[in-house]
Amino acid sequence: MRLSFAALMLIVGTIPAGAQWLDRPTPGIPRTPGGTPNLTAPAPRGPDGKPDLTGVWNGPVPEPRLDPANAQAWVSDLVGQRQRDYHKSRPSYRCLPSGPEADRFAGWKRVLQTPSAIAILNDDLTYRMIFMDGRELEATPAPSWMGYSVGRWDGDTLVVDSAGFNDKTWLSRYGQPHTEGLRVRERYRRPDFGHLQVEVTYTDPAAYPKPWGFTANMALAADTDMLEAVCERSSEHWAGSLSDAANRAVSVPPDVLARYVGVYTGTYLGIRRSIEVLLSGGQLIAKVVGAAGVDGGETRPLVPQSQTLFEGVGLGYQFIVDDKGVATDVVEIHVSGPYTYSRQRRPR
C-alpha cells in the first residue's frame, strides 16, 4: 500500500544538512591547559565595553509553544489547513527565506559586530542587518522577507526590535502565520565565552491577542567554521495531504486501536526521544516528546492504512504486535529509513 510521505520528503529534499569545516583551530580564543576551547571563560568585550557577540554559532531548534486560546480564529483555521497539507507551503520547504520563523534562531550562523551595525549571516546565504547607530524603528518599513531591525544595549543585553516583515513567512514550523503588523523583540545575552541566549517575543494583535515567544540557546562553534548550505529543490512538485490519506483509510476496530496505546522510546538521528500514542474519539494520536527537529512535540492524527500501518502527517507508523495483538514496538517510517521505538508503558 502506497504512503505519501510528503512532509518527510520536504525535510530531506529541501533542507540541506548544516555543513562546516572540521579541525580548523580558531585563533585568539581562551583555552584550557589541555588546549581545548574554554567555553566558560568570560565573554569578550568590544571597545565600548559591551559584550562582543562576534563568532560562529550553532544551536538546536527551539520549541515555541503557543497557547491555542491565544490565537484568532483565522489563525487556528490556517494552522489546521497547513497541517492537513503536510506543511508543503512552509517557506523554507520552497527554498524561500524563513524570515522571523523560530527555526531561524537555530542552526549555523556567523555574527559580525561593529559599533554601528551587527550582521547575522546564515549558512543558507540569507542575512540580517541590525542597525546600532541610534536610528528609530521605522513605523511603516517596506515589507520584506527578513524585516528591518534596530538594536540598542540595555546593560550587557542586546535588545533588537524588528518590523517590516511580509506576511508570507511563518512563526514556527507548525504553520503559525502572522500579519504585516508583526513586531519581534530579541534579547541577546552572552553569559560567557561559549554560550549565547536569545529571548524572542512576537507581538501581532491581529493574529494573537497576547505577545508570545520562546528562548533559543546557541553554543560557540570553536575550532571549526561554517560552510554554505544551499536549498536546491523546492516542494512545489510534491503531492499528498491528510485528506488523501483519509480517502485511503481502512476501518480498525476500537479494541485493536486500544492495543497500540502507550509510550514508545527510541533514537532518531542520534537524538533520544519518545512517541506517545493516545486514543481520542476513536482515532489514534501520536505526540513526539522530547524531540528536536521537524516534529518535536507536534500532535499528529494517525490515519489507518491497514490494521497495523498508519499515516501521520507525511510519516508512516507501523505497529509491531505480539501473538495477542498487543503492540510491542512502533516503526516510524521516514524517507531516510525506518526508526524503531520500543513500548515502555501506557500513558496515564
Rank of each mutant, 00 (worst) to 15 (best):
I11P: 01
V12C: 11
P30R: 02
T32I: 07
T32A: 05
L39K: 13
P47F: 11
D48T: 07
G55K: 00
G55E: 00
W57P: 00
R65H: 11
R65Q: 14
D67Y: 02
P68I: 03
P68N: 01
Q72H: 14
Q81H: 14
R82Q: 10
R90E: 14
P91W: 09
T114M: 10
L125F: 07
M132E: 02
M132T: 00
P141W: 09
P143I: 04
P143K: 06
V184M: 14
F193Q: 02
T201I: 13
Y202R: 03
P211Y: 09
A222C: 04
S234G: 13
H237T: 15
G240D: 10
G240Y: 09
L242G: 11
V256I: 09
V261H: 06
Y264T: 06
G270S: 05
S280M: 08
A286V: 13
G290K: 07
P301T: 02
Q305C: 04
Q305R: 13
S306T: 13
F310V: 01
G312D: 02
G312F: 01
V313L: 14
F319E: 03
D323N: 14
D329K: 10
S336V: 06
P338S: 03
Y341L: 10
Y341G: 02
S342D: 01
Q344R: 09
Q344I: 08
R348P: 11
